[in-house]
Design a protein around this nucleic acid. Structure first.
Ligand SMILES: [Mn+2]
Ligand SMILES: [Mn+2]
Ligand SMILES: [Zn+2]
Ligand SMILES: [Zn+2]
Lengths: 140, 140
DNA sequence: CCATAAAAAATAATCTTTCTCTCTTAATAT
DNA sequence: ATATTAAGAGAGAAAGATTATTTTTTATGG
């Protein structure tokens, strides 16, 4: 928790239990949760925390670059404490979202820059398919 | 309009003025409009059309593969009658969404398949930046 | 034409996200 | 330690996007 406190302070943010809890949770999961999911996981430890606080905190963390926002095409956003741009794969069977090895795409941005007159500053790469468990289910 | 009628009939869909108008509009624009935008453009010609009809029609067209749904990270979905998977670039200045030359990515899906145990069936590639007009604005 | 099933219209409801207002608290300087 | 103050948290309302429900209208095959 010390490091997380430091991260917040570095950015001039007040260190509050809610911020610590939300950032800590995101830094120790790889499930790319939604605001709703984060709220449900934390509300038992922080009974007074409201969903609005989760949203507001996520916005603050996003704006200071401590987390990134994903949208894989559902109704709601997901959040990720791994802030380097990296590709994701979504299971169309169970809805889970996982990281993909990013080494595959190292010169993709360069290619794009060559082929467009936009000033390119970011990217979001999403792949869709079926995870091993869901493939097995389909074969039964 | 003949071809559009045929497309709907091929899929066993009733040919209604609303469906013709919505699909025709999407097939002749490259602006990747939202449901709201489509509604606003068409309501003058179809004064009784409701936004709910636009949503329902878009869902039908999507489910039959006549259009695809995009989510570039705004609050709402955009729709595209070009149904082949192709990359998009979003202007962070003016919000416009354009197609990118897809030839750059021809073996991307193959690369992904090599590096994951998912059964990969689709992809969404979004790039973010500033269009030439917005770059010019920023320099003034 | 007519019957019938499907679609459109109208409207309400739901779901996610944002806003506003008030109260509390963390950070800082004394 | 205490006081000050500016930022954040909480509650609830509100907004915005999408979906569901009910009734009316329309497309289409016979
Ligand atoms: Mn990730
Ligand atoms: Mn497109
Ligand atoms: Zn799965
Ligand atoms: Zn622009």
């Amino acid at each position: 928790m010390e490091e997380i406190t430091a991260l917040l302070k570095q950015r001039g943010l007040k260190v509050t239990p809610q911020r610590l809890a939300i950032l800590n949770f995101l830094m120790h999961t790889n499930e790319h949760p939604t605001a709703e999911t984060i709220y449900k996981k934390l509300v038992s430890d922080f009974p007074t925390m409201s969903l609005a606080t989760v949203y507001k905190t996520l916005e603050v963390l996003k704006n200071t670059g401590l987390i990134q926002e994903l949208n894989v095409g559902e109704g709601s956003f997901r959040y990720d404490a791994k802030t380097t741009p990296h590709p994701h794969i979504v299971c169309l069977g169970c809805g889970k979202v996982e990281d993909l090895d990013e080494s595959i795409f190292k010169d993709l941005l360069e290619e794009v820059k060559k082929h467009t007159d936009y000033k390119v500053v970011g990217q979001k790469l999403y792949f869709y398919g079926y995870c091993p468990a869901c493939q097995k289910k389909m074969n039964n």
